[in-house]
């Protein structure tokens, strides 16, 4: 079926099987490789994107539901050379190790900060449940707080 949506501000129309996971449309057809495949079961969060501003795991989201929606991926988080506060904070705290899960974490964090601009440690624990095998959680927590502060400063 044909599905149209806005992705990182660009309208796209794809013609694929209606149940194709949105993740593969994003990665294989639209060639945006920042959204990662980790498990395909909505368990690891490596494919977290925003759909109409909400954090969604793209591997468990059939493309047909994307009709008319506005999608943001890690490639759309920064604007030109200007990094999103979450990305800035991730740079400042030198969070990534292997880096594979990091786009998903940054997308989940960006969604969190839209809902809770100054999250507590408890908020972070409750909302950020992606999986990082390099276990960069210690720096991520610092970076999430830092991102909240950057967002506040630049407001």
């Amino acid at each position: 079926m044909e599905v149209s949506f806005l992705i990182n501000g660009v309208s796209q129309r794809v013609d694929v099987d209606a149940d194709t996971p949105l993740l593969w449309v994003i990665r294989d057809i639209l060639d945006l490789k920042g959204t990662k495949f980790g498990c395909g079961k909505a368990a690891c969060g490596a494919c977290t994107i925003h759909i109409d501003g909400e954090a969604v795991r793209a591997c468990a989201y059939a493309v047909k539901f994307a009709e008319g929606k506005s999608i943001t991926t890690i490639e759309g988080l920064s604007v030109g050379d200007k990094l999103h506060p979450v990305q800035q904070a991730w740079m400042e705290e030198v969070v990534p190790q292997c880096g594979y899960c990091q786009p998903g974490f940054m997308m989940a964090t960006a969604a969190l900060l839209e809902k809770i601009p100054q999250p507590t440690d408890q908020d972070i624990d409750d909302n950020i449940v992606n999986v990082c095998r390099c276990a960069t959680y210690y720096r991520m927590r610092k970076a999430i707080h830092r991102a909240a502060a950057i967002k506040q400063e630049t407001r």
Partner: peptide, 15 residues
């Protein structure tokens, strides 16, 4: 919760 709603993973039909 705020950024981890049911719809983060669960949509309108089984996947």
């Amino acid at each position: 919760v705020a950024a981890l709603t049911c719809n983060t993973c669960h949509q309108a039909e089984n996947n």
